[in-house]
Computed example of a mutant assay.
Amino acid sequence: MTTNTPLLKADNVGIHFGGLKALSGVNIELNAGELVGLIGPNGAGKTTFFNLLTGVYEPTEGSIVLGNDKLNGLAPYQITRKGISRTFQNIRLFGELSVLDNVKVAYHSLARHSIFSSIFRLPSHFSGEKEIEEKAIEFLKIFKLESFMYEKAKNLPYGQQRRLEIARALAAHPKLLLLDEPAAGMNPQETQELMNLIAFIRERFHLTILLIEHDMPLVMGVCERIYVLDHGQLIAHGTPEEIRNNPKVIEAYLGEEIS
């Protein structure tokens, strides 16, 4: 359920690489429970913005705040613990690990038992591992992946690999889920299944979702609001209908399909 409570505020955010301004003056605000799109032509700065939100890069200017926590200067693992998880345009699973172990890896970032207990194989280690495995299996059931749990991740069909990557991201119990081009490489049927999955995730886990995507029917079909980047700057923000008819957006895409 969408609320008017700000969850994320990016205020005048920018980053420079040497003399190159990759992003400049970006202001984005997400309310709790929203599903928001971030679109723009190739090279517009969309993934760079995700990298700023997740601590891969640190902003050269501006601030990023999640709830009451300023994220500037935090390491990626610290930001994950604050409540942001992401997927990647190019799927980044542990291909040689099982489907089950890929999800367990995410749960380990939140594990309550200590390294000390693991080294010395204390009872708390075994009880903690059992709890993690039970939670991971339950998660696989939610995403209809339990029949693949002992398969190597690399052997899954492409659409199932994408589903597993999203499941792994959600296993870290984020407040904000960042999806970076989840429909990349998918056929129309897989894309439709992905749309249904995104809607299910939002309702089931009461999440805020920020979505980068080039598949405009998908974006227009699932997002409540859309931000548009071009050459590192925001050029538009509004509802799907407003974005579809915005002259600046149409010009930025140079006649590409945006409906």
Rank of each mutant, 00 (worst) to 15 (best):
K70M: 10
F50H: 10
L38G: 04
I119P: 02
L66A: 09
M220S: 07
M186F: 04
H206A: 15
S147K: 15
L110H: 05
E58L: 00
K144Q: 15
N12K: 15
M1G: 14
E129Y: 01
R92S: 10
M1L: 07
F17K: 02
A10T: 09
G95M: 03
F139T: 15
A184I: 01
F120D: 01
D230W: 02
E151W: 13
Q160V: 06
G37V: 04
S109R: 05
S117V: 00
T3Q: 06
V36F: 06
E257G: 00
V56L: 09
N90S: 13
F126E: 04
L234V: 05
E165M: 09
Q89G: 11
N12M: 03
D215W: 02
D101Y: 07
C223L: 05
N102V: 05
G232K: 09
D230E: 13
N102T: 10
E181M: 07
Q233M: 13
F116W: 13
Q160F: 14
A184L: 03
L66E: 11
A183S: 15
F200M: 15
R92F: 00
H16E: 14
E190T: 04
A172W: 03
A22H: 04
H214C: 06
N102H: 08
V103Q: 07
N31Q: 14
L170N: 05
C223D: 04
R202E: 12
E193S: 13
C223A: 15
K21V: 01
P188T: 07
T54Q: 07
K154H: 08
V26I: 14
L74H: 05
K104E: 15
L35H: 01
G83Q: 07
Y57H: 14
L156D: 10
K248H: 12
E61Y: 05
Y57M: 04
S117A: 15
Y158Q: 11
A172N: 01
